[in-house]
């Protein structure tokens, strides 16, 4: 009884806050992500060397005081390349998710609002896109368009549209039967205004919460495509292409592959930890209280 009273009295944001603050995994994710963002923003200040500077004398040097994470095939400092690589990963992930969110939400809201055969068809296709391997879809698109930063972002954005559309569609169907939408329609508002002004603001928080999980998958896809050779072309440092170089030298220079691997793992893990905690907090089924 007292619990029910309390949950009514506490407003939505602060109740969410209560759920996170008790979740150690949320804090771990937040801390990791904060560090990674700081590192990428401050890259020119903290990188010990120029990431593109080649030094033929110091080729494939193991980790030392001068080169903390060793040097690569061209004598470039792995740590500095790693720090600059964070920028590409975060930027590609963020822009791709922003594009996917815009397109996906539009598709989801329109399909849910209009309903009927269009909805059935759109959802059928999205279901297949959802279960179609993101990596393969991205790989095909990037291969067809050619390897460049812009095409990489397009390819990754397309792979992430379906999940956004799904998350936007379900609440739209519930919202369109609510009184305030009916009232808007009775006042003669057009469908575009109803979808944009009345429905969108009510589902945007669900969408934003999920976007950190999908940014994790976008970064994973970016790294995988770069590894395959479909990412941002060299000499720009990206984690995926650094691992590719490391893989080619795997027998005699373990540090080339290991450090970028850990960087990708930590970034994706941080986003997953955050996203997971956020989702637990908004999903009443999982809250189980």
């Amino acid at each position: 009884m007292t619990i029910e009273v309390a949950s009514v009295a506490v407003s939505q944001p602060s109740r969410l806050w209560l759920v996170f603050s008790r979740n150690p995994l949320f804090w771990l994710g937040a801390l990791l992500l904060a560090i990674i963002i700081m590192v990428s923003v401050l890259a020119p200040l903290i990188a010990p060397h120029d990431p593109l500077e080649q030094n033929i004398v110091a080729r494939l040097e193991p980790p030392s005081a001068e080169f903390l994470f060793g040097t690569d095939n061209y004598g470039r400092d792995v740590l500095s390349r790693l720090i600059y690589g964070a920028r590409i990963s975060l930027m590609v992930g963020f822009v791709a998710i922003l594009i996917a969110m815009t397109i996906g939400c539009t598709i989801g809201i329109v399909a849910g609002y209009i309903g009927g055969a269009l909805d059935q068809l759109v959802m059928g296709v999205l279901d297949v896109m959802l279960s179609f391997p993101a990596l393969l879809l991205g790989l095909m698109i990037a291969a067809m368009l050619g390897a460049s930063l812009q095409n990489l972002i397009i390819a990754i954005a397309i792979t992430e549209i379906a999940p956004f559309a799904r998350v936007a569609r379900a609440p739209t169907i519930a919202l369109k039967q609510q009184d305030f939408v009916m009232a808007g329609r009775a006042l003669g508002f057009g469908p575009v205004r109803i979808m944009g002004v009345h429905i969108l603001p009510n589902l945007i928080s669900d969408v934003v919460v999920m976007s950190s999980l999908w940014m994790a998958s976008a970064i994973r896809t970016e790294a995988s495509l770069s590894f395959i050779g479909l990412g941002v072309p060299p000499p720009t440092p990206t984690w995926g292409s650094m691992i590719r170089e490391g893989f080619d030298n795997i027998l005699d220079a373990w540090w080339l592959a290991v450090f970028p691997s850990l960087a990708i793992l930590l970034t994706v893990l941080a986003l997953n930890l955050l996203g997971d905690a956020l989702r637990d907090a908004i999903d009443p089924k999982l809250r189980g209280e």
């Binding site: 590894f227 592959a257 994706v268 893990l269």
Partner: peptide, 15 residues
Amino acid sequence: SLVGLSFPAFVSGIL
């Protein structure tokens, strides 16, 4: 399980 979900398959493979 989150660490497992975060691993791109080529990263875990290389390690």
